[in-house]
Nucleic acid binder design. Sequence first.
RNA 1: GCGCCUCUAGCUCAAUGGCAGAGCAACGGACUCUUAAUCCGCAGGUUCUGGGUUCGAAUCCCAGGGGGCGCACCA
Length: 480
Amino acid sequence: MSDSPKDDQNELSNVPYSFAVTSDTAHIRQSFSDLGQGESSGITHSVAGRIMLLRTQGKIAFAELRDSSGHVQLFASSDATEDFEKFISLSLGTWIGAIGEVMTTRRGELSIKVVKWVVLANAQRGFGDKWHGVTDPDTRYRQRYVDLWANPDARTVFVQRSKIISEMRRYLEDMGFMEVETPLLHSVAGGALARPFTTHHNALDIDLYLRIAPELYLKRLVVGGFERVFEIGRVFRNEGISPRHNPEFTMLELYQAYADYSDMMELTENLVAHLAELVCGSKIISYQGKPIDLTPPWRRVTMEELVSARLDKQVRLSMDLDELSAIARENEIAVAPSWGQGKVLLEIYEKTTEHTIWDPVFVCDYPLEVSPLSRDHRYKADMVERFEVIVAGRELANAFSELVDPAEQRRRFLHQVAQAQAGDDEAMGMDEDYIRALEYGLPATGGLGIGIDRLVMLLTDQSQIREVVAFPTMRPEQDR
RNA sequence: GCGCCUCUAGCUCAAUGGCAGAGCAACGGACUCUUAAUCCGCAGGUUCUGGGUUCGAAUCCCAGGGGGCGCACCA
């Protein structure tokens, strides 16, 4: 970052406003794959991209031209190429457009035999070591444009991210879901338990929150008669940054009328397995050196069973608070006085069990106490019909049968407000309009949220969220 | 927010108390089929910043800054 750009070379700064390409490098590779060694195709193409390598050899030169689809070799020679002397003095990183016949060299390398060429952009700064690239994480994340050229693997991740999201859209649309957009600016921060970012609207003179979840608006749309809706969008949570957390991240949320959380399980496992097959070529993927089998159906097991098996003793929500708290303390969990059995059970699960799960598991049936938007379990007291999907020790999805009873929703919100007053800065606020919406009638509805960034991490074998977010949140650069 | 680690040429890295170096990039040159081309030459530094210990500090100590990892919070 302290490096300074080279002085402009005037003749190279005078670059054209457009350049007509006839093909990209991937299509050329595809079209001329049967061209034998030392053959000329007789077909001229015009390509553009960056010069990533340049090998001069007296009166001839070889360059690697890279574009967004791949790369192809340029072959230049003093008798065929215009301004040959200038061509061989090009700096690595220069964008050029090149026109010439498609051919192969004596060694069989597919090449464009450059006749005419033009500089499209000058690279005044270099892209690092041509073998090692740039590995400094600070540079890679702050200057992603450098990373993407210096480290081709970084580029692949973002291509796959794009494929995952685009295929997710297509898959859901094929199921009859409609993509919608709901507000990012909320006057009540709801739909999840998290601290929000605050901002201010000048004309209305009110504080607004950047949304922590689209949930409550999406369910309003179901009330409005859109029976299958989804949104893929950014949410914002004012929390710490870590290898698995970025303050803004992308969520898929979907809602399906007349469905419950069992339907959401089926949808989730089928969607994720489908995406894995698309991106990884198999439902059995490799993550951080270990295999993960995403083939449906995934194991379905209750939180109580998981924790009981892990701790090798019965752990039930129906136990006395003292009894549960003792188990928590045995596992070095500090129990806060405001916690009920539900919160204690959740803490025990999260601290002792969650990180030990590798292959995908639907962790079913959460305590009502920690699930203010989920519908009461149809058979189990103080439980809700909710599940999280855990893969590789991490939460991948969260879903439930939605709470449809406005009076009960009001009680849940009131409890949240009390929690907030007791100092819980992640508790939800009262959302009167949402209750009013429920009063107009929300049918049985299944809801699902999937963290896209974490899904992309899983399917691209990345351990850090910064590898799948093009421009992760960073402390502002200091003057250096 | 707390703990541990780290910062040396544009990039990737050496030098562990004794003359700050290499490869790549850049720059100059040779070379008509290369594949990280090769070869010759040249240049490149506030060793993150500030203070301290020492005859002598990239190296040891203190403080600050950037980054990484772990914990906490969370998805």
